[in-house]
Structures are given as C-alpha cells and as structure tokens.
C-alpha cells in the first residue's frame, strides 16, 4: 500500500499534477472522485505547493503517517533528481550559444505566463468592492515593501479572513 502510493504520486509529478493524481487514485479505487476533489479543496487552505498538500492529505487519510512519509518522498524525489540532472547538464553545456538562446527565449515567455494567470484568476473571481480594495492595498504593499512580504501576507490574510466574516452578504 505504502509503496503503491509512492508510485502514484511519482506519476503525478507533472504540470497537471492534481488531475493526474486524482485519476490515478480514483482508478485504483482508493477514493471516489468527489471525495478526492473535496480533499483537494481542503489542501488549498494549506501553505506550500498544492500537489504536496493534496498528496499528503490523501495519503494520511488512506494509510496514516506512514503513507504521508511515502507521499512526501514521492512528491520530492522525482523532481529533485530531474533538476539535479538538468543543472548538471547546464553546467556543462550552458555556455553553448544555442543553449543560451534557448534559455533566453524560454525565460522571455515568463511575464506572458504570469499575465495569463492573473487574467484567468481575475476573471474567475467573484468580485465585490471590498475584495477589490483589499487586492489593491495588498498588491501595493507587496510591491512597495518587497523585503517584508512575509509579514504583509500573513497579516493581510488574517485581516481579510476576519473581514470576510464581518461583511457576509
């Protein structure tokens, strides 16, 4: 059981981790799809990569703390090995002009991806005046005081959490 959960989570080590992992878990009959996505919704309230918290919550429910350790290893190890390999290759070949151009081109798309993410999330969000003001203030603070992003975010989340409760429509 524990070993099987390692392979599952390893399979899920990708860009579309959450649905892939869900598919693998449902296929093995460990959880129903609804229950998996409930767990995923819970995982979003935790800090850290969503794939990690989802994998941990699922495996704790399925096989307790031994499962959690297996899931942790399963989420961390494969990408770790790939990154170490890529970094090693870059150390050797990184100075080749073609590789340099590849990295330049790949790096140039990053603002485009972030802008697309902002676009999608903004469209999906249920906006109201309060949330727009919160967003504007929080963004401004984060940009103006980059060194203090940790306290700004933690404080901001607590305040927004309390305000959501106050202005319940």
């Amino acid at each position: 059981m524990v070993f099987a959960s390692i392979t599952t989570v390893t399979l899920g080590g990708g860009y579309v981790i959450v649905p892939v992992m869900g598919h693998a878990i449902v296929k093995r009959g460990w959880m129903t799809e609804d229950h998996y996505y409930d767990t995923f919704a819970k995982a979003q309230a935790y800090p850290g990569p969503m794939a990690l918290s989802t994998a941990l919550l699922v495996s704790i429910e399925l096989c307790g703390f031994r499962g959690a350790i297996a899931a942790l290893a399963g989420v961390i190890l494969p990408p770790f090995l790939v990154i170490v390999l890529v970094s090693k290759l870059l150390m050797t070949y990184g100075t080749l002009p073609a590789i340099q151009r590849f990295l330049n081109g790949a790096g140039a798309v990053v603002p485009g991806i972030v802008a697309a993410m902002v676009w999608k999330n903004t469209k999906r969000r249920a906006w109201n005046a309060q949330r727009i003001v919160e967003l504007a203030i929080l963004t401004a603070l984060l940009i103006l005081f980059p060194a203090a992003s940790l306290p700004i975010l933690l404080g901001g989340i607590v305040i927004m959490y309390l305000l959501e409760g106050v202005w319940k429509r």
Binding site: A41, K42, Q44, A45, A108, V110, P111, V114, A115, M117, V118, N121, T122, R125, R131, E134, L135, L138, T139, L142, I143, P146, S149, L153, G156, I157, M160, Y161, E164, G165
Partner: peptide, 28 residues
C-alpha cells in the same frame, strides 16, 4: 475550527495579489 469559506476567499484574494506582484517584478 476555521471558517473554510472565509479562509479560502481570503487566500484567493491573497494569491491574486501575489500574482500581480510577481507580474510587476518580472515585467519585461
């Protein structure tokens, strides 16, 4: 006991703010 809806809403606003900040610091 945490109110799940409130915390998720707060986190959603928070993460959009973080994305906007990311966009700002990574602007071309």
């Amino acid at each position: 006991s945490i109110n799940k809806t409130s915390i998720n809403e707060a986190l959603r606003t928070g993460s959009i703010a973080m994305m906007l900040m990311t966009l700002w610091v990574l602007r071309p």
